[in-house]
Amino acid sequence: MAEQVALSRTQVCGILREELFQGDAFHQSDTHIFIIMGASGDLAKKKIYPTIWWLFRDGLLPENTFIVGYARSRLTVADIRKQSEPFFKATPEEKLKLEDFFARNSYVAGQYDDAASYQRLNSHMNALHLGSQANRLFYLALPPTVYEAVTKNIHESCMSQIGWNRIIVEKPFGRDLQSSDRLSNHISSLFREDQIYRIDHYLGKEMVQNLMVLRFANRIFGPIWNRDNIACVILTFKEPFGTEGRGGYFDEFGIIRDVMQNHLLQMLCLVAMEKPASTNSDDVRDEKVKVLKCISEVQANNVVLGQYVGNPDGEGEATKGYLDDPTVPRGSTTATFAAVVLYVENERWDGVPFILRCGKALNERKAEVRLQFHDVAGDIFHQQCKRNELVIRVQPNEAVYTKMMTKKPGMFFNPEESELDLTYGNRYKNVKLPDAYERLILDVFCGSQMHFVRSDELREAWRIFTPLLHQIELEKPKPIPYIYGSRGPTEADELMKRVGFQYEGTYKWVNP
């Protein structure tokens, strides 16, 4: 592979701008107003304001973009700056750019259920340069409990009458099928589907988006991507930290609602779906819905739930269990780990287990898709061969690698495990991989909904998990304890083995 010439960040961002501006969906010269509902909250200060700053800094926003914060707290732009700027990672050389960014910011205080507050917000936006005809993007960085009041008031008082209007809704989209349907029906009564952007930030990850290209742009994968060759698929999300004093919020939802029903299920769809007619948003989402419709409700015998306990040999936070978090209700049975087996009941995947695993306070930070292939028929190497695996590593250190057998150097035919490896950090030294939120917010500006969740996708996802969630809430089974920093409950490994996964433990990928 030829040595790549190092590029400056300015040059890299210039390439990104060229890609972005050559499309006809990006209205570079139009006025846009980006409204952050819930501007005083954690999500706004840690993710949304920093993301908008990065896009502005790199010249990736339309030229005439204004940012308006809205929340109940009586704040000023200076207050917003004070709480969000520490997350910007701005350099001293960017000081003038930073001043320009905050000059485009404003803030309006108001209630979430008060019509007069929204009329005041609308008047404020109209007073901005060309504000009355601007395109408006409303980001709901809010708890779902206020979605209905907020969307109703936005629709009645704050819509642009000339430009387009788009609304970005953060997960969780309800707690179960019934609450999700209620919320979807409410929002759909106010906005068209092409105006609604239900954001799952995992769909903005580079390697998640790469799944489609790997599958449908490489001839070698087509013939082997089926039940005849693939023994099982494992989708993993692991965090090495616990709730760390923020367990009160987590306890309301648990690990299945927080990660599995959305992030992991979306990745499953991209692995299992048929080739779409095109890369058009609805063509892709149509195929994802077909996959979900082929999955039956989760069966309790295919589920393992766990909850982390303190590690007596650990240090600091590792010595504390979930129930030691003062914000967690006493005696909570909320799971911090889950392993679930699903089956896609169609011709391509009949009988292939899709194993979804996620948890907190585990032994490493990792998100990946792992396809394990069947054993080689007619073994001539005296059971020395391990199964081939194709691994798409989402985070950290984005990579695609194939675990395969090669001859060990020497005189004899002794096979050993090795890999074919594409590590993004080595291959793409001159490429700026956008943060997931950067990519998705740019998608909203461009009107691309491919990486957002459609209402029928959402409904099918909740259909699969709601009976299990209701059973857990009714019966309150005690989750299996696992030690902070471990791989999780051993019962999860036993479940995976029972459905056909072979864990060798003899080879570990190392970032080159």
Score class of each variant (00 low, 15 high):
Phe88Gly: 00
Phe250Leu: 01
Glu94Val: 06
Ala103Pro: 04
Phe241Tyr: 15
Tyr107Val: 07
Tyr147Ile: 02
Ser179Met: 05
Met125Gln: 08
Pro92Tyr: 11
Asp251His: 04
Glu85Gly: 09
Gly59Gln: 07
Arg219Val: 11
Tyr249Asn: 00
Cys232Gln: 13
Leu214Gln: 10
Gly222Thr: 12
Ala44Glu: 00
Ala134Glu: 14
Asp100Val: 11
Leu7Met: 15
Ile196Leu: 12
Leu16Tyr: 15
Leu190His: 11
Thr243Gln: 02
Asp42Tyr: 03
Asn218Tyr: 01
Asp113Pro: 08
Ile234Asp: 05
Phe250Arg: 04
Tyr112Arg: 01
Ile220Tyr: 07
Ile80Arg: 01
Glu252Met: 11
Ala231Cys: 08
Trp164Gly: 08
Gln83Thr: 10
Gly248Ile: 00
Phe21Asp: 13
Tyr202Pro: 01
Asp228Asn: 09
Thr76Met: 10
Val146Ser: 05
Glu239Leu: 03
Phe173Ser: 05
Lys45Phe: 06
Pro143Arg: 03
Lys238His: 02
Val12Ser: 15
Phe138Ile: 10
Asp194Pro: 08
Leu55Gln: 09
Ile36Leu: 05
Asn105Leu: 10
Leu190Ala: 09
Lys82Ala: 12
Met125Asn: 10
Tyr202Lys: 04
Ser184Asn: 11
His186Lys: 12
Asp194Trp: 09
Phe101Ala: 03
Trp53Tyr: 11
Arg72Gln: 01
Ile154Trp: 02
Glu206Trp: 07
Cys232Gly: 13
Arg81Pro: 05
Met159Arg: 12
Gln22Val: 11
Gln133Leu: 11
Glu170Gly: 04
Met37His: 12
Phe56Leu: 04
Lys89Met: 11
Phe191Asp: 03
Gly14Val: 09
Arg57Pro: 04
Val108Ile: 14
Lys171Ala: 00
Ser184Asp: 08
Thr236Trp: 00
Glu206Ser: 05
Lys95Glu: 14
Pro240Thr: 12
Ser123Glu: 15
Met125His: 01
Asn105Trp: 11
Arg215Val: 02
Val233His: 01
Glu206Arg: 05
Arg198Ile: 04
Glu85Tyr: 08
Asp30Leu: 12
Arg219Gly: 12
Gly245Trp: 07
Asp113Lys: 10
Ile230Val: 12
Phe138Thr: 07
Ser180Val: 04
Lys82Tyr: 11
Val108Phe: 12
Pro86Gly: 07
Ala141Tyr: 03
Gln195Val: 05
Asn210Pro: 01
Arg17Tyr: 15
Val108Gly: 02
Asp251Val: 01
Pro240Tyr: 10
Met212Ala: 04
Gly222Tyr: 09
Ala127Trp: 10
Leu61Gln: 03
Leu121Thr: 00
Leu7Arg: 15
Lys46Arg: 13
Leu55Asp: 07
Phe221Met: 14
Glu170Lys: 01
Phe216Lys: 04
Leu140Lys: 04
Asn126Cys: 13
Arg198Gly: 00
Ile224Cys: 11
Ile48Glu: 02
His27Gln: 12
Ser160Lys: 11
Ser180Cys: 06
Trp164Pro: 06
Leu235Ser: 03
Arg57Ala: 08
His155Cys: 11
Asp42Cys: 02
Ile196Gln: 06
Ala90Cys: 08
Ile80Ala: 06
Glu19Ala: 15
Ser132Arg: 15
Gln111Lys: 14
Gln133Arg: 15
Glu94Asp: 11
Asp100Gln: 15
Ile224Gln: 10
Phe216Gln: 05
Phe191His: 03
Lys82Asn: 12
Val169Ser: 00
Gln133Ala: 09
Lys97Arg: 14
His155Ala: 12
Ile234Ser: 12
Ile199Asp: 00
Phe34Tyr: 09
Glu18Lys: 15
Gln11Ser: 15
Pro144Ala: 07
Gly69Thr: 02
Ser189Leu: 11
Arg227Leu: 07
His124Thr: 12
Phe237Met: 11
Gln195Glu: 13
Glu85Cys: 08
Phe56Met: 06
Ala217Glu: 00
Glu156Gly: 14
Glu93Val: 09
Arg182Thr: 13
Tyr107Gln: 03
Leu177Glu: 07
Thr91Cys: 11
Asp251Ile: 01
Lys152Phe: 13
Met212Pro: 05
Glu63Leu: 15
Tyr70Cys: 11
Gly23Met: 14
Leu98Phe: 07
Asn226Arg: 06
